[in-house]
Design a protein around this nucleic acid. Structure first.
Lengths: 159, 159
DNA sequence: CATGAAAACAGGTCTTA
DNA sequence: TAAGACCTGTTTTCATG
């Protein structure tokens, strides 16, 4: 059985998925180029992209940054477990730490998972020292990335 | 003391940082618009963007996807610890699971940290079932995101 | 197919090492 | 004086009706 991806305006078909993959890969690919690749006219592709935006599937356009290239070669995941009563404080501190590139609130023993980019181990220590008064932390240095940011897909989707 | 962001071709100044922030926020902002915002001519901004690309700081252009909008409303972080001797196998399996949007190899007790997007709890179970023969897993459902993907910055940077 | 906007390009000026 | 950064005007490309 084939799974169908749905959104408010109807089904996403294989062409939509190919368009999305191309845009994830290179958001500056021209409409003409995408059209050629999927075998459609440029206006048709243009219209599909418009619908993907209005359906909220494409939230926006952004750049991929290489933190190492501007002096932040050390990346780590921090798991953060606030001491009772300090959850709000910790949340605010995390937002205020500029080295944190992303942070999610999660279920389970840890309350937050944050990705940090720093220049050195002492810099990492300084980041942790800002959190440690209000939470227990657990740090994992990123060594490599077997899967870099890509379009998630349900198993057996209609692509 | 002001920290200076360095890259191979020299220093990044405050204007470069503003350009990067604008592009992270909206990679389709026109050069003219960015130029107006930073108080420069379009060609100057264009030249700076070119240098940021050639310096490897801007790795590429991409789109922000909302997985919930196309039928994957449930997101989770998986921590994965392969049983001895199965690290390579696990790494391959993780690459093959289409629901995994990103996966890092890390130091510490866990070997991998992966973000998955699925349609339902049963779908999450199916993902975990593919991994469990070769590794111990620990799952944290994402509830919210106090910090959404942003440009990391050293404390006290020259912006 | 035509129109309008936006980006790439070329040439000229000013500052600074 | 030479190099680099920026600005103005022009051309060409691309998205859109």
């Amino acid at each position: 059985m084939i799974k169908r991806l749905r959104y408010e305006n109807g089904d996403l078909d294989a062409v939509d998925l190919r368009i999305l993959r191309m845009l994830v890969d290179d958001a500056r690919a021209s409409v003409a180029e995408i059209a050629r690749s999927v075998g459609m006219s440029a206006p048709s592709v243009s219209e599909r992209i418009r619908r993907l935006q209005e359906g909220g599937i494409i939230e926006g356009y952004t750049i991929r940054i290489n933190p190492a290239a501007f002096g932040l070669p050390l990346a780590a995941w921090l798991r953060i477990r606030p001491v009772p009563g300090q959850l709000g404080t910790v949340s605010e501190i995390l937002r205020d730490i500029p080295e944190i590139a992303t942070c999610d609130r999660v279920t389970g023993e840890d309350c937050f998972i944050a990705r940090v980019h720093v220049g050195s181990v002492p810099d990492l220590e300084r980041v942790i020292d800002r959190i440690i008064p209000y939470a227990m932390t657990n740090t994992s240095i990123i060594q490599s990335s077997p899967v870099t940011e890509r379009l998630p897909m349900p198993a057996g989707a209609n692509d």
